[in-house]
Nucleic acid binder design. Structure first.
Lengths: 226, 226
DNA sequence: TAAATAGTGTCTTTAAGACAATATCTC
DNA sequence: GAGATATTGTCTTAAAGACACTATTTA
């Protein structure tokens, strides 16, 4: 067991998601070298042992290299490894899901060369490099599942939002239609958001604006929704 | 990015759990080489690129090297990495949780040298090697959480079991006291177990024996229990 | 028959679903 | 005031919790 085995390649890939115009979008980068030259992929890269203090640090660095947008939420999804997923040999990649609120993105975005945001649900995933189609499927599944019993979709909303906007956001991430009264009761009873005191400007009747009480708190609801 | 970075060490560690006499037990091995010589650790080892087709294969191999007991359930928990968790340098370990039913363990166990089963809740975890105390905490948290809304604890039961035994099992994994009627209704309504037709021999009144309908199915209940 | 454990009946509680009614805003 | 959207009221439903009651087994 102390023989030195060939060390596998260890990378981190990040599915970086945000919401724009009522649709989930994902950050993709065009590969500028083989393999899969010219194809689009999730942002990712090698773990830099002397630079990254842990895997989340790698994920944050990989994002920062492509856009200066700091994520509002980050979660490790799964580590996938095999000798077939990358033509360069046996590799392992630690897959992360990261969320950034749409307003921050519009105001602060500096997209790196070859980067783009693509609408997630209309994306032709089988054109992605490596096994990123499979990775993306795992992220979608995780987000959809956790949106049914946690407050995670709130991190996709702007810092202040109406309850209707919040409902649309959860409808997008759960891929379902939600019932207005149930949704509001659930969110308000959970005591995780509070009124800002301001009112929304758009629309007909003005709606109360809310903010997340604690940006670092993920709430677990006692039951599934949707 | 095409420079060759120092590859980190990639290992797999497995928390292998079973139930004996109404308590969770975990498989530990005594380290026979430095670092942490003589201390106990989770079974684990390097990924063997030419041998393991993926990470779950590594986890199964690592278990098989210590005991021939095939797990009834296996789940990847999280990948933990840093330059402080192992004195040998920057390492990443993929942590798995595996369950084996207690009856199989009693009948088929061949424990490797230096291995032992220890009661999980009375284990002095801060004597474990590496950061295995922290890894174990993550596994405990995952098992407790998922026991509240999935059927996973059933994999710790013998192939045929009474409803009372099932309830005790869930009480152990959730660390809570459950209500008999609620528990039975929940399990039976889920349509995931069926009567074997046999009756239990022990105890006063004979109890109906049940088995899992589909050993590969993990059921998600619509609400949390306990 | 008593003790112990298995199993059931049924009322309450919690939180989601349905859906209508009312309120407020802009034009 | 009309149209649109926000907000609330309230009845229903699903599934868990409480708890007492009955059933079966063995000593």
């Amino acid at each position: 067991m102390e023989e030195t085995y060939e060390k596998p390649i260890l990378t981190v890939d990040v599915a970086y998601l945000s919401i724009k115009e009522n649709a989930l979008e994902i950050l993709l980068i065009e590969r500028d070298k083989p393999p899969f030259l010219g194809e689009f992929a999730l942002p990712g890269g090698y773990v830099h042992c002397n630079e990254d203090k842990d895997l989340q640090a790698t994920a944050r660095r990989v994002i920062a290299e492509k856009t200066h947008l700091d994520p509002d939420y980050i979660e490790q999804v799964e580590t996938i490894a095999s000798d077939t997923r990358d033509p360069r040999g046996w590799t392992a990649t630690v897959l992360f899901m990261a969320l950034v609120n749409g307003e921050k993105r519009e105001l602060e975005e500096h997209l790196g060369k070859g980067c783009k945001w693509d609408e997630l649900d209309s994306l032709d995933t089988n054109t992605l490099a490596f096994d990123h189609e499979a990775l993306l499927a795992k992220v979608k599944e995780r987000l959809t599942a956790k949106s049914r019993y946690t407050s995670i979709p709130l991190f996709l909303l702007p810092p202040s939002f109406t309850l209707t906007e919040a409902q649309h956001c959860f409808e997008i991430t759960t891929h379902s239609t939600l019932e207005k009264k149930s949704f509001r009761r659930r969110l308000l009873d959970a005591d995780i958001i509070e009124e800002t005191g301001e009112l929304s400007e758009t629309g007909r009747r003005k709606a109360a604006l809310y903010r997340i009480k604690d940006k670092d708190d993920v709430h677990f609801f006692p039951r599934m929704i949707g």
